[in-house]
């Protein structure tokens, strides 16, 4: 059953955060949504899960390197950069 604790757990996995009021609303929404999703739970597990059609090894990309992009292009959309790098707050 869906509850606030599960919402918190999913928020952590999702790297999202909610105020208490938002958390309640989200828990409520998720409860209603999961009730629809529960439809799949009883499905025949002897059926094969879907997978993409395989490609043959011979059709894979040949191993030849090409040009990379200019560093300034790669960094163009970053809000904060230093020199040729992206700036990340310290990882705890």
């Amino acid at each position: 059953m869906f509850n606030t604790e599960l919402t918190r757990h999913l928020a952590e996995l999702s790297k999202l955060e909610f105020t208490d009021a938002e958390l309640d609303k989200m828990t409520n929404d998720m409860t209603n949504i999961i009730a629809v999703m529960d439809k799949v739970c009883g499905f025949d597990t002897s059926k094969k899960p879907y997978a993409l059609d395989a490609v043959d090894y011979k059709d894979l990309r040949r191993d030849e390197h090409g040009e990379s992009y200019p560093t300034e292009k790669i960094l163009e959309n970053a809000d904060i950069k230093r020199g040729a790098t992206f700036v990340v707050p310290k990882v705890v």
Binding site: D63, H65, G66, Y69, T71, I74, A84, T85
Partner: peptide
Amino acid sequence: DSKVFCTCQNEFGGSENTRVCP
């Protein structure tokens, strides 16, 4: 010669973010 999922060169070291693509 190239990286596993793109055509950037697979090489050790080098200046920061010079062997990078989208």
